[in-house]
């Protein structure tokens, strides 16, 4: 069962081909790894499937629907949630508020309900708050939930981003280098968290430079280099692929 299927995705920035004819598919319940040297186009691919960039060519299919140039909020509603490589939290809001904002797509209260403080709205608000609290505990945020996002440590901010994304009850969770800047214990905890997320039935798409983490977690891995998919398969296969090795140890010694 395919959850996400990309076909022939291309994206250019001026003269730079950030993505060229990328096709791949991710099955439901998989943990799918995306690796490649710096500037290979991994984040760009994330931006395409979350609607932040419009692809110049190709299209993708998510949960049985075709998308070409969809708005980010539409794709979020369809069930794609993500974190950002260069953390994008709502810095001046509390950790709890950040996660509650993640509930936006799964809640309904409108202007009138909010002004009237209707019963439905109060119930929804309470459920939203409770759920947000649970998620903060799940990702292991120890600081008070009222702490401003910008006053959290790097690792905590990364986990808060995951909690915020989980609040959207996604079908697909896309994580852009979640372990960057984490120490060994934090990375270990992260690994358990991601496994827990998958066991809860959420498909995971993971960009990571930490090879150990990728190899230990992923069911399948794709490798991007200069915007092209140069390999795909189970971790062991990919690790020994000569093209992958040369891409990583390649001419410019990345």
């Amino acid at each position: 069962m395919k959850l996400l299927e990309l076909s022939g995705i291309g994206k250019r920035f001026g003269g730079l081909n950030a993505l060229t004819d990328v096709s791949l598919h991710i099955g439901r319940g998989e943990i799918y790894g995306l690796i490649g040297p710096n500037g290979a186009g991994k984040t760009t691919l994330f931006n395409v499937i979350t609607g932040l960039y419009q692809p110049d060519s190709g299209e993708f299919n998510f949960n049985g629907k075709r998308y070409r140039a969809a708005k980010p909020h539409v794709l979020a509603g369809a069930g794609i949630a993500r974190t950002f490589q260069n953390i994008r939290l709502f810095a001046n809001l509390t950790a709890l508020e950040n996660v509650m904002i993640g509930r936006h797509v799964r809640t309904r209260s409108g202007v009138m309900g909010s002004i009237m403080n209707s019963r439905a709205m109060r119930l929804e608000e309470k459920a939203c708050r409770d759920k947000a609290g649970e998620l903060l505990n799940l990702v292991g945020l120890k600081k008070p939930h009222q702490t401003l996002a910008k006053n959290l440590s790097y690792g905590e901010q990364r986990r808060l981003e995951i909690a915020r994304a989980l609040a959207m009850e996604p079908l697909l969770l896309a994580l852009d280098e979640p372990a960057a800047g984490m120490n060994a214990t934090e990375t270990e905890n992260l690994k358990e968290l991601i496994e827990g997320i998958r066991n809860a039935g959420i498909t995971v798409l993971l960009i990571e430079h930490d090879v150990k983490l990728i190899m230990g977690l992923c069911d399948r891995v794709a490798v991007l280099d200069y915007g092209r998919k140069i390999a795909e398969g189970v971790p062991d296969e990919v690790r020994n692929d000569p093209q992958v090795i040369s891409a990583y140890l390649g001419v410019d010694g990345e």
Binding site: F84, F90, N92, L93, I101, V105, G110, V111, G113, E124
Partner: peptide, 29 residues
Amino acid sequence: QRLEKSRIGRAWMAIREDEIAASAMGINT
């Protein structure tokens, strides 16, 4: 006051803080 503490108000503040992240959260900015 009512709006500030509601889903709508939070969405506004999300947009104020980071519009791109807000849209990725499913907010129709």
